[in-house]
Amino acid sequence: MEILAFGVQADERPLIERAFAGLHDIHCVHVFLTEDTAPMAAGYEAISTSVNANLSGRVLQTLAVGGTSMIAQRSTGFNNIDLDVAERLGISIARVSYYSPYSVAEFAWTLAMAVNRRIVRASARTRDFDFRLDGLMGRDLRGRTVGVLGTGKIGEAFTRIAHGFGMRLLGWDVAENPACAALGMTYVDKDELLAAADLVSLHVPLLPATHHLIGAAELRAMKDDAILVNSSRGGLIDTDALVTELRRGRFSGVGLDVYEAEAGLFFLDKSLEAIQDDTLARLVTFPHVLVTSHQAYYTEDAVGQIVAATVQNVDDYVAGRRTENFLVSPAGPAS
């Protein structure tokens, strides 16, 4: 079967092509799936998409008209997909339900440590042979309190690292993780966690119930010198409210690997263009804010697992098998 893979990064391409070799014909393009690029999929029964693909009802309709009946998304999140429309059109949707939680957890800690110890500012200075320490003072994390919102696989991996630092562990989730509790984590309500934590890290999925989980009230509830890290989904934070608090001089550091309006920006080179997003433009001007481009998952280990799962999803579709990865059941291949 011929498959068109959208939004393939240069580092991903050899991994994808090797994984599909001898099984299916895979054609990789770097452009992302949008309303404008959806016609490219005409004639492809199956396509593969990245996390920032636009899989709205209009796009799905275009894909269906072009003959696409299976979409294998190379991510865990699926808030970008209109599943009701996909089911109505008979398009099977599969995602990757699991990949290395350590990739994201370790990167979340990379962000936390970078803003805590002012690494970006220090690096910029030393490139100019400015070796002053003014403004570079951080804090020991040992003995301080970390608040983990979401204690699933990634949250657990993040918590284990926090435990290694010797931090007091607070957690919030719809259900307690026994592994986190065994490390000494105390589960509290969200307000108590935000008020007590020196470092807050988000590890929950983006759902209607978690959209703007950290809004104006939650940001005001946090300590003035707290560190906030988000390596999950941008929509968890009300970015305009965050900018308002930052302008008031609050927070010791903020590390964001995701942004709620990142589609059409992240994974692309916009360096020669005028950025029209005033909120993002303001956000990156704060010296204690570090924004990266949704790269927390981007390790050889995690991407290799994502690609392997994508191949398996296509094989399962061809065989008419339903697995936990399928959000909309496979109807079986047309040929």
Score class of each variant (00 low, 15 high):
Asp224Ala: 14
Val254Gly: 05
Thr244Arg: 06
Ala226Lys: 04
Ile81Ser: 06
Leu213Glu: 11
Asn116His: 12
Arg118Val: 02
Val96Gly: 07
Asn177His: 11
Ala175Val: 07
His294Gly: 08
Ala302Val: 05
Ile71Gln: 07
Ala334Trp: 10
Asp140Leu: 04
Gly249Thr: 08
Thr310Asn: 11
Ser335Leu: 11
Glu260Asp: 15
Glu192Cys: 12
Asp191Ile: 00
Lys223Pro: 01
Leu111Ala: 00
Arg248Ile: 14
Met70Thr: 06
Lys270Ile: 06
Thr145Cys: 09
Thr34Gln: 03
Ala38Asn: 01
Ile91Glu: 02
Ala196Asp: 12
Leu193Cys: 13
Gly253Thr: 11
Ala331Tyr: 08
Leu268Cys: 04
Ala319Ile: 08
Thr310Ser: 12
His294Arg: 08
Tyr298Cys: 01
Phe20Asn: 02
Val120Ala: 15
Pro208Arg: 13
Pro101His: 15
Ala209Thr: 14
Thr279Cys: 15
Asp277Arg: 04
Ile227Met: 14
Asp225Ser: 12
Leu206Ile: 15
Glu245Lys: 00
Met70Trp: 11
Asn116Val: 09
Ile214Pro: 06
Ser50Thr: 03
Ala281Asn: 12
Ile154Cys: 04
Phe129Ala: 11
Arg88Ser: 08
Leu256Ser: 04
Asp316Lys: 04
Val148Lys: 13
Ser123Pro: 00
Tyr102Trp: 06
Val328Met: 13
Thr244Phe: 05
Glu262Phe: 12
Val59Pro: 01
Ala105Phe: 08
Val31Gly: 00
Leu246Glu: 09
Phe286Arg: 03
Asp191Gly: 06
Asp128Met: 05
Arg117Gly: 10
Arg88Ala: 11
Lys270Ala: 03
Gly143Lys: 04
Gln312Cys: 08
Ser231Glu: 09
Phe326Ser: 12
Lys190Val: 01
Arg160Ile: 07
Ala302Ile: 06
Phe165Arg: 06
Ala42Phe: 02
His203Glu: 15
Thr239Cys: 09
Leu265Asn: 05
Asn52Ala: 14
Ile16Asn: 01
Asp82Cys: 04
Arg168Tyr: 02
Val303Met: 08
Ala221His: 07
Asp84Lys: 13
Ala216Gly: 06
Ser75Asn: 08
Gly234Cys: 11
Gly171Gln: 09
Pro333Phe: 07
Ser123Val: 12
Asp316Gly: 12
Leu111Pro: 06
Pro14Leu: 08
Tyr298Lys: 09
Glu245Ile: 05
Val104Glu: 05
Phe326Met: 14
Thr145Gly: 08
Ala226Tyr: 09
Ser48Met: 15
Leu23Ser: 13
Pro330Leu: 12
Ile26Glu: 03
Thr126His: 01
Met167Val: 14
Leu15Ala: 11
Gln295Val: 03
Tyr98Cys: 02
Ile47Phe: 02
Thr292Phe: 05
Thr279Gly: 09
Ile237Val: 15
Tyr44Asn: 07
Val31Met: 01
